[in-house]
């Protein structure tokens, strides 16, 4: 590759009108050791591009990507939620039944109390007789 051609290609290169092939020629020219002195300042540029081409992705390609855990997490969450609701509802019903039983027992015992109270109270009724017989026995005397 003669020098004049390279210079022409360089001018075109910086106007970005070179084709990919012409750019490859330039890279080839600058990758060999005897570069014309006045063009040497461009050498690092092409060298750098050549170096960059050598970079490789060394990490393994992750074959099995993360599974859709989110789906299963949501299913589990719904299950937990529903069972929590079920348990609280069940407990609620149990509590209500227990409360009803306690209420009935209390009512029963209270009727028992009131019955015995009433029998006691009927005995007291005799006292009114006493008060009836005694009130009329008091006489008011004038003392003057």
């Amino acid at each position: 590759m003669e020098l004049a051609n390279i210079e022409k290609l360089l001018d075109k290169y910086f106007e970005a009108t070179t084709t990919v092939q012409e750019e490859q020629e330039l890279q080839l020219y600058f990758s060999q050791p005897n570069v014309a002195p006045h063009l040497q300042e461009y050498q690092p540029m092409f060298q750098h591009f050549a170096n960059l081409q050598g970079e490789q992705y060394t990490k393994n390609v992750p074959l099995q990507p993360r599974k859709n855990y989110l789906k299963w997490i949501s299913v589990a969450a719904v299950f937990v939620f529903m069972s929590a609701i079920g348990i609280t509802y069940h407990q609620d019903a149990q509590d209500r039944a227990a409360a009803e039983l306690a209420y009935l027992q209390f009512k029963e015992s209270m009727t028992l109390v009131s019955q015995s109270f009433n029998t006691g109270a009927s005995r007291i009724n005799h006292l009114t007789e006493f008060s009836d017989t005694t009130t009329n026995k008091i006489f008011i005397t004038e003392n003057n």
Partner: peptide, 29 residues
Amino acid sequence: SVSIVHQILEQLPAQQKIIIQLRDVEQYD
């Protein structure tokens, strides 16, 4: 000098970085 070129490339705006990478390194048309 090669690392100087690298530093210069770093200064380019992102769009130009992409284009220069695709053209001069990957040789896309």
